[in-house]
Design a protein around this nucleic acid. Structure first.
Lengths: 241, 241
DNA sequence: GGTCAACATATTTTCGAAAATCCGTTGATT
DNA sequence: AATCAACGGATTTTCGAAAATATGTTGACC
């Protein structure tokens, strides 16, 4: 019987825990693209049996973060310039639609939540001082929340789910890019502008700013992916070759 | 060692088999919306242990065909008029984008495959004579293949995957509708027209026809959902109540 | 009669071992 | 030396039982 609110996370099944940890480890590239995911190693890493781990992996496979080859096991999904480009273009389209709908339908609640999300984001430092090679996980969450809040009024759970998944995928590339070439630009003002025009119902302008926001970030990522893709090479083989 | 081509399906893991069967049973509503999915029952139904079944269910959960409540097990995802409407609108947007790109980029290969897919579809009878209450699974597959072929040249695997998933979801509603109010209209000519204008690169016309194709089908489904939603009521409880 | 704790049953979740499969290596044969 | 079947270790996949959790029922108490 769970007594305190604090250990609310304790009551979740191992399965859910495995899922959360695996997703986080993959998105932050603590588990690198293309890295093999041996069940035995993961069992040890997360301290649980095979079932919850395999179940979580199957779920992540459907999300595209993990790939399964029959009888050969799982590995973290590969990254590539082609996939990144595809992701970018698709994201732009999806975000554009969602943003249009959201601006059209958003009411006071939407405005309030968006302002709140921006405020939280602006008070977060992007880089964790204790670990300057990675982006702060707090910032990352606030950033995701801001962009979610922007389109939250679109009125379509389906569209929101698709958008969230694409955002997640893109975030993995961002994490990868930061590892190889340091933090990206600071974009507080970009977010502020975006929020402003959205709240002003300047739909076309908002859509355009959002498009630029996505392409600017991901262009940088694409550049560092092309340059330093050594980082992802020789992954997944047992030894060097 | 698999010897013949015929039992190529034998070599797949039980996991993959469970996934395929569960997906099929859910999409055709042999497993009804909101129906509880007890592992013991599924073990018996598919003749395998718990692991492959739970793994398949987790994967389907990510696809939205199944829902999981912690420590209370799985059930087939609920259907609703609101969800159907959401699905319709989202599908129209996604299909529109994919179709635009496909018409823009499609070459001879695309044209040939599309013509082939249409031909196969037109030679399939929609209703299985042995089971007139359900749509023929062969037809259903050819129909899906046709619509896939239409957008196949869009050049975006991400978009294609999203589209396929939405199409699948919609198909479940179609199956449900057929159970309660008989087969829908025969739409061979509709498909033919759609193909024609696509091959002629009349983009706007194609997009509009595609939009109409989707909304016409799903409006009918929505109507029969509103009328005969008794079919899905009292599902999932052990006994009537 | 109503409330609720304690028990009993049904079901989900998790584990660890067994079976199946893959992959690299050895060694026999040509 | 080259080919390839057979072996062996590593790994994935699957099973069935055990543990954990939910749910329904009984009966004590007010």
């Amino acid at each position: 019987m769970p007594s305190s609110l604090a250990n609310a996370s304790t009551v979740q099944t191992l399965n859910a825990s495995a899922l959360a940890q695996l997703r986080s480890d993959i998105l932050t590239c603590r588990l690198m693209p293309n890295e093999r995911l041996r069940v035995e190693a993961l069992r040890e890493r997360y301290g649980m049996g095979t079932s919850p781990i395999r179940e979580a992996l199957m779920r992540l496979e459907a999300e595209g973060l993990v790939e399964l080859e029959q009888n050969k096991g799982f590995r973290v999904s590969e990254v590539s310039a082609a996939n990144l480009l595809d992701l970018m273009r698709t994201r732009v389209e999806i975000e554009t639609i969602a943003l249009r709908w959201s601006i059209e339908k958003g009411g006071v609640e939407w405005e309030a939540n968006l302002l709140g999300a921006f405020h939280r984001l602006s008070r977060q430092t992007k880089i964790d001082p204790s670990n300057p090679d990675a982006i702060s996980e707090d910032w990352s969450r606030e950033h995701a929340d801001f962009h979610t809040a922007l389109v939250a009024a679109c009125g379509s759970p389906t569209m929101m789910a698709i958008r969230a998944r694409l955002f997640e995928q893109a975030d993995r590339y961002v994490a990868l890019s930061i590892m190889s070439s340091g933090p990206l630009r600071d974009d507080v003002t970009e977010h502020k502008q975006l929020m402003r025009v959205a709240l002003n119902r300047e739909t076309e302008k908002a859509v355009e700013l959002n498009r630029l926001h996505i392409t600017r970030t991901l262009d940088k990522v694409a550049a560092s992916l092309a340059a330093g893709h050594a980082a992802t090479e020789s992954q997944g083989r047992k030894r060097s070759r």
